[in-house]
Amino acid sequence: MSNIQQLNDLATQVRRDILRMVHEVNSGHPGGSLGCTEFFVALYNEIMELKEQFDMDGKGEDLFFLSNGHISPVYYSVLARRGYFPVEELNTFRKIDSRLQGHPTTHEGLPGIRIASGSLGQGMSVAIGAALAKKLNGDNHLVYSLHGDGELQEGQNWEAIMYAAGNKVDNYIATVDYNGQQIDGATDDVLPMGDLRAKFEAFGWDVMEIAEGNNIEAVIAGLKEAKGRTGKGKPVCVLLHTVMGHGVDFMMHTHAWHGKAPNDEQLEKALAQNPETLGDY
């Protein structure tokens, strides 16, 4: 897939999936999911080298780890629409006996998922481990991960950030969803994180920013640049500037929709702003 219109159509359909999934069960996290839609669409359709069949070990392909597991709706939608599992299965999200648990897990055997996440701050360590395994196996593919900005308040991240730079884990690109929001409000109000770029750089990372994290062309260009920076002795950090709730006007620029589902009327309004493109599940 390379046509930008096709990718934007996919992103719009993914947004519809996200909204319909969380509405159906009146729970889940639409805000961060909507904000990271372009990132997931780009990563899984333009950036990563992926094998046709999923296997847990992922040798000979790029790997992705979602650390902020609560944005599972966007992950599930993009995986399904990339062919990892039937799109109709999105209708089981957060329901009993489903492989689509509230937060991603390997436990139910959902193709595409290699680690459970949800309890925050653990994904970077896992991604580093997978990157080290790739080096041991002589596998030149890359490891990607995504983290919330608020999630960086968890201390384990900084253990991992220190380790990755100190040990030159340079086959690894960690992206931070830099939307400035978390459950209780703006990150600057809840626990100010200061200059994230300077912090990563001080730890020894190669840091770059994608200013328009909700512009598919900008995201693709940025991630391609990040790929070009791997293999040079430093882990790569991408600060991805996104808008939480992007694509639904009343959900944007606020933490209010971090973990809240729209009601019937709100869903209708939100879907009207994201007309069906590839067909609803």
Partner: peptide, 28 residues
């Protein structure tokens, strides 16, 4: 030496790295 990872005084990170190493068939 290539199969040893000194993680420093950072046990949480060690557990996560170990989990990640299994993805690629290592036995940490």
């Amino acid at each position: 030496p290539e199969r040893f990872f000194q993680v420093g005084i950072a046990e949480a990170n060690m557990m996560g790295i170990a989990a990640g190493l299994t993805i690629g068939e290592k036995i940490p």
